[in-house]
């Protein structure tokens, strides 16, 4: 199972490749909206994770708003994770 750090790196690589974003200053607190990631691009981002990590994400009840929330959502839904859709906005 990949770590949070590895997922974070995957996110950065995607952003750099698809949106040509400078990922040097990216942190877990970086807001998706500030990076130009609207709802459509977020879906594409998750779609890319599903391809790269060979899993399928269920429909999300709460849309992640930061890189950190996105990383945790992906981690929580990877095969072998303890619970689904488990991310906590207050944990940042």
């Amino acid at each position: 199972m990949i770590s949070n750090e590895e997922t974070f790196i995957t996110v950065k690589e995607f952003l750099k490749a698809r949106l040509e974003i400078d990922t040097g200053d990216l942190t877990m607190q970086s807001k998706l909206e500030d990076l130009g990631i609207d709802s459509l691009m977020l879906m594409e981002l998750i779609f890319d994770f599903e391809d790269k990590l060979s899993f399928q994400m269920p429909d999300l009840e709460d849309r992640p708003t930061t890189i950190g929330e996105l990383v945790r959502v992906v981690q929580a839904n990877l095969p072998g994770a303890s619970s689904a859709n488990a991310f906590d906005k207050t944990s940042e």
Partner: peptide
């Protein structure tokens, strides 16, 4: 034979 198409397909 992927289960889904890209979310950007429509737009």
């Amino acid at each position: 034979q992927k289960p889904r198409a890209s979310p950007l397909s429509v737009v």
